[in-house]
Each structure stands twice: as C-alpha cells, then as structure tokens.
Design a protein around this nucleic acid. Structure first.
Lengths: 320, 320
DNA sequence: CTGTTAGCGCGTTCAA
DNA sequence: TTGAACGCGCTAACAG
C-alpha cells in the first residue's frame, strides 16, 4: 500500500495523497505494527533487555534509569526483568529475552552460574555484565571500584586510630562482597593490623540480620571500636545495633543512602553513582550494537569499565 | 517444517524425529522467534506496558515489582517506561507501546492531560490507571485511600491537642495531593478548627524545597505546633527543618520510608503498600485481558480498586 | 506422522 | 507517483 510509504516518510508520494492517508489513519486510529516491521526489516526489535536481582533496591532502579536514559537516546526501549536473586528465574528471563530478539542484554547476574549468558553471547546477542565480571565467557562489563573504595574507607578508620575493626558483608560468593572484603583486608595488612576472624560476619542480606550480626560483635569481650559494612543493608542494620547498645562505635560503609547524615553517628561512606553504572553499561552496549551494524568482522576485545567511588564523611570519625 | 511442531510440543511427531530436532536446535542455538510467532497467531505479544513517572522512587519500583509479579504469573512480561513527570515523554511512550502491540498498559499519569491514554483505550488496548483516576475516558483504575489516610492522621494530631497544624504537599494539580489536602481539611473542619492559609505550602517535590517551606512555617510569629506532610519527600524535608530549628514540632506524614523510626521525633504516618497497588493494577489488567479472550461482547463497566492505608506511629505525638 | 500451501503486517523491488 | 509481487519467521489447515 501507499500508506507504508507515507508512514515511513518516503518522499516519493504526492503531498495530497499523503495528507489523505494521514487523515484516514488518524480517523481509524491506525498505527503500523512495529513488530511486523522489525520482522521484515531484519533489523533488531529496538528492545534492550535489562535483568536485575532486585528492582526494589534503589540501587538497581537508578541503574535501570541510567540504562534507559542512554539506550533511549538511541531509539531503543528497555525491557526490565527482576530475578529476585533466583538463578532459575534469571535463566528463564534471559532465554525469553533472546527468543524475543532483543538487540542486546544488560544483566546483573544473581550468581556464579552464568551459563545462560554464555549461551546468549555465543548465540550472537551482545551481552553486558554489570556490577560483577563475566564468568566463563567473554563480555563487556562495568564494575564498581569495590576494592579501592573499601580500601580507602578502611584506611580512614585506621587513620582515626581504630585497630579493632569489625566487618559486615555479603556472602563470600558475591563478587562485590569478596572484593570489598579484600580491600578491607589489604588496608589492614598495610597498616600492620591483623584481621581477626571473629570480627568478620558475612552473609546477612537484610537489615534485621545485619543488626543481629553487629550486636554479636559489640557483645564480644573485646568489641571492635569501629564497624565497616560492605553494603547499605548492613550499614543500616549495624547502625541500629550501635544505637541500641548505646556504644560509641564508629561506623563506615559502602553505598550511600538517604538520611545517612542525620543518624547522629560518625559515618564514613564509599559512595558511587549507580545511575552512572547503568549509563556506562548502556554506552558499552550501544557501542557494541554500533560496531555490529557497521562491519561484521570478528568482534573487538571485551571492554571493561570501572565506576569510581567517592569518600563521603557524615559527622566525624571518633578516635578509638 | 517439522521443527515448528517439535518446539510447540505437538504430539503428532515421532519421538525419534523430535529428539533429532531438539539436538540440532541445541547444537545451533536455535530459538524460535516469539515476535514472528505472535504475529502469525494474531494473539497478543505477551507484553504489558508499564509507564511510571519516576522509577528511582522506591514507591514506583515496588509498584513495578507488584505488577510484574502478577502479570508474570500469567506468562506476560513487563516493559517499563519512565516519564520523568514529562507529559510529552508519556505520550511518546504510550504510543510506542501501542505500536509494539502490547496486550495492555498500566500507567501512572504524569498530569491531567491523558488524551493519549484515551486514544489508546479507544483503539482497543486495555488501560489501567494507577494512583490517579482516569481523566476524560473510562478505564479500570486502582487508587490509594488518600482522603481516608490523611483524614486519620490529621485526627491523630488533633487528638494530641494540636490546633495549629501546617500542611506541606504536592501541587494542587496532582490528584493524590489534592485528595490528601481534602482529607486534612475535612478532619480540621470536623474538629471545628479553621484551616489557616498561611500554614499550607504546596508544590515542593524535592526534599530540599520541602525543608525551605517547612522552615518558613516554623519561622512564623505563631508557628504551627505540628506539620502534616502529604508525601515522604516533604516528610524528610520537614524533618530536617524541624531538626535544624531545634523545635519540638510534631510531625506526621503520608508514605512510610526507611529509618523513619530512628529520627528521634514523634512521627505518625499513613502507610500503604505500593507493591499491593501494583499487584491490584496487574489483577485488573489480567482480568480485562481474560474477558477479552473469552467473549467479545461490549466491555464490562470500569472497575475501581482502593488500596487502604495503615496508621504507623513512631515515637509518640507530643501534645501541643 | 510429515510436507505443502497460505497469510499474519510490513517493506523492498520492479513494473506500470 | 502508485500498485503488484515476494519474503521476513512462523503456524493452521489441509494434503500426502
């Protein structure tokens, strides 16, 4: 039909006819089927898949906004999937996105098993891994400076005189958690301080669990004079424990959060911009899509981006 | 081809052949194209569009999870779009979703102009409006008990003896803001208290602006002894102002938020579950899709769901 | 049980 | 400038 030309702004059509078509389309509420269009064109669907573990966490929703802002600027739309930390859900989600012929996928893997991502990447779908490195296959990825941030914050505590420092973090199997623990440990080692195993608690994911773990540390015969929390769930939980104990324990953490400044406690935070993390992931993906469009030669080497952390001080670190 | 039957689990195929097909598919990483499939079948795309104003707000991300949980249980996937309170963006987003042939749309309108929603609904796409009522057309919708929640909280303040109560809220053009102001005003009227115009500040959307507005009220010759904030942005902002002024002003608000319990201030909140709001919206949409599938007779009357609020007390309301 | 025909809505190519 | 034919990947209906 001629309508196809009109809706595609093909100049080879009489203005008179074009106007008549537009009028009729408006009258009937006609819209061309973008799905059929992409099918015929062989071009992508204009869809980008984004898979995260927990959208309710502002960290991930801001990441999603960052992704959407960048890919949206390139005429792409974002399909968000939530896994709830469930690997099986993540696998289904990724396979479904591939079956829907998304142009690319950005994913924050829920666990070490990334075989479905490897399969998708092998199938020719551009994959960008965010917040953790790809495991078992090559892909672009964007990471936070987990080690550096934890290292800097820990040095801050050491400089304030603390020697007995507790650590609350994610399970060791989570990349970010492991890296932050490594940064913490390295800083201690550089200061000649030994890491005491009884001061390290890993695995608590919710604030309630974190409160319990922190309370345990504070109840030790020789309690830590400061706590370093590897994520904001633990920081909030530890805050409650310190407050309940009425102790003067100093607090430091990873990930900023609202109202951190009014807790009435010395608090040092390694903050970073999750929006920027998403934007960078989007940029990597868009760039990859671009090179795919131009030349079909062997793909460039995987790129790796690093999002820096900033040191934020609320109150002052009391000396221990 | 026979592969079509195999991948669709059509029993009319030899197990031998089926297995051979599956093996080849696995080898080649073949996946059937779901887009082409839905095109041929004429059935929907299995996609649900969700349009919100600000995904970075945990309120909306939880709403999104609620929607996804419900529609996901029915084999549907959620495409999330963010408008940033921009009506033009909302219009583009909705039109694009319609062009992509989503099976239905759930939207939190950014403003009163919902003509694009009316167009979509008229075009036969099921629309569910969340958090605000539809304007200018008929559609299912799910609302929060804005009036009731504000009314209850205000009565709480009145019962504690407060008579000079300030109000910080959204612009009057936002439905939720208007309803909450109405609940506030009605409660005052029932107690025989006159609403003082100088105690009402509308329009501040960010915490910083809210802090300024609250500071203004506290600086009045006869300052309010309590503040009612119609959303959590204003509550957080007002908290900072009260804290800075060192006044004993009581605080009450709409929307719960993390750390509300540790602010060291009497705080009463009308809380509600935005996850449930999303779930209910999802249920309305799924139900609408179901009836569309069964009979094509004239559509049922628009349904309207109401999500209740719960009163939460942090600390105690000091008497004024 | 398997292959063939036809067509979902669109765009490209080639004639008219 | 417009229309007819063909095919994108898939499947319902009918052969074989």
């Amino acid at each position: 039909m001629t309508v196809s030309r009109v809706l595609r702004d093909d100049p080879k059509v009489l203005p008179t006819t074009a106007e008549r078509v537009r009028a009729a389309a408006a009258e009937l509420g006609y819209r061309r089927n973008e799905m059929a269009r992409s099918l015929r064109l062989g071009s992508g669907t204009g869809l980008v898949g984004l898979v995260v573990t927990n959208l309710a966490n502002p960290f991930y929703s801001r990441l999603a906004l960052g992704v959407d802002a960048v890919v949206g600027g390139h005429g792409l739309k974002t399909v968000i999937g939530n896994t709830g930390h469930d690997v099986a859900a993540e696998r289904d989600l990724v396979e479904d996105l591939v079956a829907r012929r998304v142009d690319g996928i950005i994913v924050v893997p829920a666990a070490d098993d990334q075989s479905h991502l490897a399969a998708a990447a092998a199938g020719g779908v551009p994959v960008v891994v965010a917040s953790r490195p790809p495991n078992g296959f090559d892909a672009d990825c964007v990471l936070v400076d987990d080690h550096g941030g934890a290292h800097t914050v820990t040095r801050e505590l050491l400089a304030a005189g603390h020697r007995r420092i507790g650590f609350l973090g994610s399970p060791a199997t989570v990349y970010t958690g492991a890296e932050r623990l490594r940064g913490f440990t390295d800083a201690l080692a550089e200061a000649g301080v030994e890491r005491a195993p009884q001061y390290v608690r890993l695995g608590q994911q919710q604030t309630a669990e974190a409160t319990g773990a922190a309370a345990d540390l504070l109840a030790l015969p020789e309690p830590p004079t400061a706590l370093f929390c590897a994520n904001n769930r633990n920081t909030v939980g530890a805050f409650r424990a310190i407050r309940a104990a009425g102790s003067g324990t100093a607090l430091a953490g990873f990930d900023d959060f609202e109202l951190a400044d009014v807790l009435g406690l010395p608090l040092t935070i390694a903050a970073y911009d999750s929006d920027e993390l998403g934007k960078e992931a989007g940029r990597l993906l868009v760039s990859r899509l671009g090179e795919r469009a131009t030349s079909a030669d062997r793909r460039a080497a995987p790129r790796r981006a690093l999002v820096p952390t900033t040191l934020v001080r609320y109150g002052q670190v009391s000396s221990g």
